[in-house]
Design a protein around this nucleic acid. Structure first.
Length: 707
RNA sequence: GGGCUUGUAGCUCAGUUGGUUAGAGCAUUCGGUUUACAUCCGAAGGGUCAGGGGUUCGAGUCCCUUCAAGCCCACCA
């Protein structure tokens, strides 16, 4: 044995040993009790970031349960990450002076497909380098044919059962990226103090003439250019300043279109002038109010981000920001600084426009109610428990879910509009040529929101397998472990859709981990330059050290600050584990004479055994209750500062002289420690194991003592 | 506006159903180590557990409150 544990000498060899020996391969025909986790699929097209190393929690559970003798399955996957990937691809195109508009849909899709396939293996190998005990044979990609088929089937079922509807609603639309977003994808951007009033930091006052009178009514707005789309002016009914105005008509400046003046409680008399313009198709609140009052206004901003149908040839065709400046000048508008928050595209940063668009929506209420029942009933338990409240809160306020996206890279929605019958059809398998011709069908060009397909991931991955019994054996899965940041976007939706399709919760336990932050607790980001590359850390300190860094002295569900100091400490621990083994191993090479063992030694060994048994039991209980840090900390303390610093020091002479009885006793205790530490630090424990028991021997083939 | 989290050693953080003298890693100081490991060992200094109040025989831990920091969501004419 080398005097130091050098991870690079062992990790790759050990991983390929595991993979080749089939120890990660789950079978549906064993009698062992099942334990399954579906890996939250990383983006197929991107490198892992250090947050992905948090999946170590899953690996711990998988390896631990294997050591308990269960039939374990950890199923890997890759996500096509619709908009993310298309965005990256478009940047790639831009470098070649091309844009996605240079290609037709089919060509573009094929190009992105090839692009992703080329990059795909990277992420998978990075998961291997972290030591994750994934069952690679069962790997699924969210765009796999059999996956898509099941997603289509789900959509069809929902459509047939009336849970899907098509509706004209306002969506947050990025004209630059040419797609709409869900609320969760929208980012808020505060307008800086230095922003000019004219550009985006102002509140403008516009006078509308009253029809047939000489007076005017003044409204305050942050977006004067939307006045072309106005449907009304609205005041609070209790606002005595405007009592006489209600029921009259006002004229939109420049175009002189007549709109009514109405009253509604919605208006806050204390804001601006107390009178507000209503622009149904370009403001979310106005849309709702207009619906209530039966008001209609034109769409005056197009999907290209330019004005249209304004009633003024001068303004048609202008960009929103240009039009705003022009109006301000033309009407000589008074403006004041106004602090506000803009909704911007989380990718390109452009201001999003609320635009009216027909989209597919899921009626969420019936699904969410069932999910709430399941959580309340305890069919699904959530750890740390405080997230149960978060989960329920989200389910309570989840509104209808827009699943249409205007991008190419995704699963195209299997809905077809019949021009003959003027209605929509949904096909689980594509319609035949005859059907297309007969009904004059045209497929919706939109694709599903990525979350629509990934919300089906736990059952899809198990159903889309050659072995039809896997679903039966492993569903519902045992644990869903993921970051708390995607609880609303993902866990909530998986629960709803899983329950809907399979009638069972998709996982009986949800375990949430925190975010990995930099040494100061700040979020990692490229712009801050504080991003830690997990692969660099693995190369430098070993996978075990990286894994342990995320566990050691951390809080359940809490964020972890990554520091180089800590990973050094964990590398040292791996080396300590190795050297304890080495010391026992060296002793065994001595083949000393038949030992005489003192009664004092006997009692030391007894004490050690008892202490080890207690701490291992404790660690085991801690893993059972997802207190990984506590279990690991205890084993750290025990192995280093008790086993090595105290017991080995006391027995040093016996070890050096090769006292076989003492060595055997130590080896036994040490072996049990290796087993319980193995889930946390799989490589070094396996490496030592192989030194002791041969290269073909694996710690994963053993069982935890007393369990 | 609603919700959540955090405040413990110089720094980063653990601390279980309340129970002796509040712990670790790093950093600092001193000492040791030719033979498992310098990625080591031993020792030391360093804390009114954010402030205040309460419950209790007993509070870092439970309750109330104040202060401070961070995160999420909603609203934003």
């Amino acid at each position: 044995m080398d005097s130091r544990y050098n991870p690079a000498d062992h990790e790759e060899k050990i991983y390929s040993f595991w993979e080749k020996s089939g120890t990660f391969t789950a079978t549906s025909d064993s009698n062992k009790p099942p334990f399954s986790i579906i890996l939250p699929p990383p983006n197929a097209n991107a490198d892992l970031h250090v947050g992905h190393a948090m999946y170590v929690y899953e690996d711990i559970l998988i390896r631990y349960n294997k050591l308990l003798g269960k039939e374990v399955l950890w199923l890997p996957g890759a996500d096509h990450a619709g908009f993310e990937t298309q965005f990256v691809f478009e940047k790639h195109l831009a470098k070649k002076d091309q844009s996605r508009f240079d290609f037709d849909r089919t060509t573009l899709f094929k190009m992105i497909w090839d692009f992703v396939m080329k990059n795909r293996g990277t992420m998978e190998n990075q998961l291997r380098r972290l030591g994750f005990a994934l069952d690679w044979n069962k790997m699924k990609f969210t765009m796999d044919e059999d996956v898509v088929k099941i997603v289509h089937k789900t959509f069809k079922k929902m459509f047939d059962e009336g849970l899907i509807y098509r509706d004209l609603k306002l969506v947050n639309y990025c004209w630059k990226d040419g797609t709409s977003f869900s609320d969760l994808e929208v980012e808020d951007k505060e307008i800086s103090e230095t922003a000019t009033v004219e550009a985006e930091g102002g509140l403008f006052y516009i006078d509308y003439k009253i029809v047939g009178e000489s007076g005017t009514i003044q409204v305050a707005t942050t977006r004067p250019e939307t006045m072309f789309g106005d449907a009304a002016i609205m005041v609070n009914p209790s606002d005595i300043r405007y009592t006489g105005f209600v029921g009259k008509k006002a004229l939109i400046p420049i175009i002189n279109r007549e709109i009514p003046i109405i009253a509604d409680e919605y208006v806050d008399p204390d804001f601006g002038t107390g009178a507000v313009k209503v622009t149904p198709l370009h403001d979310f609140n106005d849309f709702e109010v207009a619906k209530k009052h039966g008001l209609k206004g034109p769409q005056i901003i197009g999907f290209d981000g330019k004005l249209c149908n304004t009633g003024s040839d001068v303004y048609n065709g202008l960009r929103v920001t240009v039009a705003r400046l022009r109006i301000v000048t033309e009407l000589n508008l008074k403006a004041v600084k106004h602090k506000k928050v803009l909704k911007v595209c989380y990718k390109c940063g452009m201001t999003l426009q609320p635009l009216p668009k027909e989209q597919w929506f899921i009626k969420v209420r019936p699904l969410a109610d069932k999910a709430i029942e399941a959580v309340e009933r305890g069919d699904m338990k959530i750890y740390p428990t405080r997230f149960k409240k978060t989960m329920i809160d989200w389910l309570l306020k989840f509104h209808d879910w827009n699943i249409s996206r205007q991008i190419v890279w995704g699963i195209q929605i299997p809905a077809y509009f019949s021009k003959k019958e003027n209605k929509w059809y949904v096909y689980e398998t594509p319609p035949t040529a005859e059907e297309i011709e007969e009904l004059r069908l045209e497929q919706d060009s939109d694709t599903f929101d990525t979350w629509f397909s990934s919300s089906q991931w736990p059952f899809v991955t198990l159903m889309a397998q050659e072995n039809p019994n896997l679903f039966e054996k492993f569903y519902p899965t045992s644990v869903m472990e993921t970051g708390y940041d995607i609880l609303p976007a993902w866990v909530v939706r998986m629960t709803m859709i899983g329950l809907y399709v399979t009638g069972e919760v998709p996982f009986s336990k949800v375990l949430l981990h925190g975010m990995v932050r930099d040494s100061k607790g700040l979020k990692m980001s490229k712009s801050k330059g504080n991003v830690v590359n997990p692969m660099d850390m693995v190369s430098k300190y070993g996978a075990d050290a990286l894994r342990a860094t995320l566990i050691f002295q951390s809080k359940e569900g809490g964020d972890v600050n990554f520091t180089e100091d800590k990973i050094v400490g964990m590398r040292n621990y791996a080396n300590k584990i190795w050297n304890i083994g080495r010391f026992i191993w060296l002793g065994k090479q001595e083949k000393g004479e038949a030992p005489v063992i003192s009664s004092e030694t006997v009692s030391i060994l007894k004490e050690l055994q008892a202490e080890a048994e207690t701490v291992i039991k404790k660690c085991s209980n801690d893993i059972d209750s997802f207190k990984f840090s506590r279990g690991f900390d205890d084993m750290y303390e025990f192995l280093w500062h008790r086993f090595a610093d105290i017991y080995i020091e006391k027995l040093k002479d016996e070890i050096r002289s090769g006292n076989i009885e003492v060595l055997d006793a130590l080896e036994k205790v040490y072996g049990e420690c290796l087993k319980i530490i193995h889930p946390f630090m799989p490589f070094v424990t396996e490496a030592v194991w192989k030194e002791f028991y041969g290269m073909d021997s694996s710690i994963l083939d053993t069982r935890l003592h007393n369990r």
